[in-house]
Design a protein around this nucleic acid. Structure first.
Length: 483
RNA sequence: GUCCCCAUCGUCUAGGGGUUAGGACACCGGGUUUUCAACCCGGCAGCAGGGGUUCAAUUCCCCUUGGGGACACCA
């Protein structure tokens, strides 16, 4: 047990994004590897965009991934509550403190004024920054504005000419000059505190020791450090993880396809595969015999994970590789486990409740899947059928007619159909007709599936009902006999 | 526009002052199979460019280029 405490702090304004999932994963792995605590905190201070559905979705995605938290929603813990909207009392206390010690001030500028100013700066090629107009308002002016009922925000007073240095776990020595920083808003006109403020209060109050988050927060860090200092809080260690990008190298968005964990779940990805894949984005375990360890269980990920060997480079999400990895995971599942993913399969009209045939189907087709959903799609190879006369017209020789009619006769006499039986039947028709290899299998395949490629032929007999097989063979026979 | 971050095969990455620059996906070829998939074997492919430093640079430094991010009363 260590005193390391980390957190994942999503805002419930949508689904759990794949980048967020990776951030959560790295926090989780770091905590589990070091014996620290992993906390989930919901940052819902954006009242316009935060939704309850989002919270539920976030939580269910995190649970599906197996990223269980030690403190947070549903569990609570010594630093509850873990929803920011329930912590306003705490925030107000510290806002008062900053106001009192002169680190913050009320700003009465209107949004229009600010926008005009910003446009002017942009035009003049100047850095975009709040002028500090309200910084030195006198008590009388403030009183007057308040009497007029003007709304105001509270801004943090950024000290001038300060060098803010910190050692980022990923980026190493990092330095900012405070002059590039604006006096940023910490409390909105509607009384809601802002992100840069709440995150500091909560991380401090929750005794977070390591802040592992996305790269996009790197430039927020100096602001936050200034707040830690003004509030006299111990400063945690920061680690800024690289972004995950779409195929074209731009920020991952809807046009790149699935971006949320829920979508991947729905598409039939296994959480183990997604986790494994995500872990390898921006981190790699120690090699084994000169080869990258590609497949790792959660336990192995925890064992090997090292926050110090996380990469600075942003990574493009390669769905092809995820698919491949997912397919490998599916193939490694035992049949029993596999069937659990398809509770409704045997109720498919095609199987008519016959679980044995459903199992046979899964066994026959699993090597074709990239995702679990492919199991449903692939079933058509057995289910859908039409006589492919284009291919079959090349098999109008008497020996093939003999082959098929023999096969039909034998099937009629067989009551039990299992792989061994099918093997025997093939052997027998082969002896009777003298056909073997391609000449034996191809005509049967073409008649039964209507295709030139597909799963092993024997499987058709264990998956498709006997009556249906006989029907297809008879139709084929009919065609072959026609002059 | 201003500031910040990043740069090894197409992609994910290992490596690091002297290496035949390693692995994986994808791709191509071969094997296996009645066919396809799976599986096994093999192959193609990379240090963004330009300056330094050094006996030696892909590795260290600078510039350029390219990509990404921040600059909100979003988080």
């Amino acid at each position: 047990m260590s005193d390391i405490r980390v957190r994942f702090a999503p805002s419930p304004t949508g689904y759990l994004h794949i980048g967020g999932a990776r951030t959560a994963l790295f926090n989780y792995l770091f905590a589990r590897h070091t014996g620290g605590k992993y906390i989930l905190r919901i940052e819902d201070t954006d009242k316009k965009r935060s939704t309850k559905e989002s919270v539920n979705n976030l939580i269910s995605s995190l649970k599906w991934l197996g990223l269980d938290w030690d403190e947070g929603p549903g569990i609570d813990g010594p630093f509850a509550p873990y929803f920011q909207t329930e912590r306003f009392g705490i925030y107000n206390e510290y806002i008062e403190k900053l106001l009192m010690n002169g680190s913050a001030y009320k700003c009465f500028c209107t949004e229009d004024e600010l926008k005009t100013e910003r446009d002017r700066q942009l035009k003049a090629h100047l850095p975009v920054k709040y002028s500090g107009k309200c910084k030195n308002l006198t008590k009388e002016e403030i009183g007057k504005y308040e009497d007029e009922g003007r709304s105001f925000v509270i801004r943090f007073k950024v000290p001038e000419n300060r060098k803010i240095k910190f050692c980022d776990i990923v980026h190493k020595e990092t330095e900012f000059n405070s002059n590039i920083l604006s006096d940023f808003v910490i409390k909105r006109a509607d009384g809601y505190p802002t992100y840069n403020f709440t995150v500091v209060i909560d991380d401090a109050k929750m005794r977070i020791t390591h802040v592992l988050r996305g790269d996009d927060h790197l430039s927020n860090t100096p602001k936050q450090i200034l707040l830690y200092e003004a509030l006299d809080f111990p400063i945690p260690q920061f680690g800024h993880l690289s972004m995950i990008l779409g195929k074209d190298g731009s920020r991952l968005s809807k046009r790149h396809g699935a971006t949320s964990v829920e979508e991947f779940q729905k598409q039939g990805y296994l959480s183990e595969a997604l986790i494994n894949f995500l872990a390898l984005l921006g981190w790699s375990p120690p090699e084994k015999n000169g080869k990258t360890r590609e497949f790792m269980t959660k336990e192995e990920l925890i064992r090997y994970f090292d926050i110090n060997s996380v990469s600075k480079t942003s990574a493009i999400m390669n769905i092809e590789k995820l698919k491949w990895m997912n397919g490998c995971y599916i193939r490694n599942l035992d049949t029993q486990k596999m069937m659990e993913y398809f509770p409704n399969l045997k109720s498919d009209p095609f199987f008519q409740g016959d679980e044995k045939r459903a199992i046979n189907y899964i066994k026959a087709s699993r090597s074709y899947y990239d995702t679990l959903n492919d199991a449903v799609v692939y079933l058509d190879n057995f289910k859908k059928w039409s006589l492919n006369t284009d291919i079959l017209k090349d098999f109008k020789n008497p020996e093939y007619i003999e082959l098929i009619s023999n096969l039909v006769d034998m099937l009629k006499k067989t009551s039990v159909i299992n792989p061994d039986m099918v093997g025997n039947i093939f052997k027998e028709v082969s002896q009777k007709t003298g056909l073997k290899g391609k000449n034996l299998y191809h005509p049967i395949r073409f008649i039964l599936s209507g295709k030139i490629e597909g799963p092993e032929l024997q499987h058709f007999f264990t998956v498709v009902p006997k009556e249906e097989i006989i029907l297809r063979l008879k139709k084929g026979l009919e065609f072959l006999r026609k002059k």
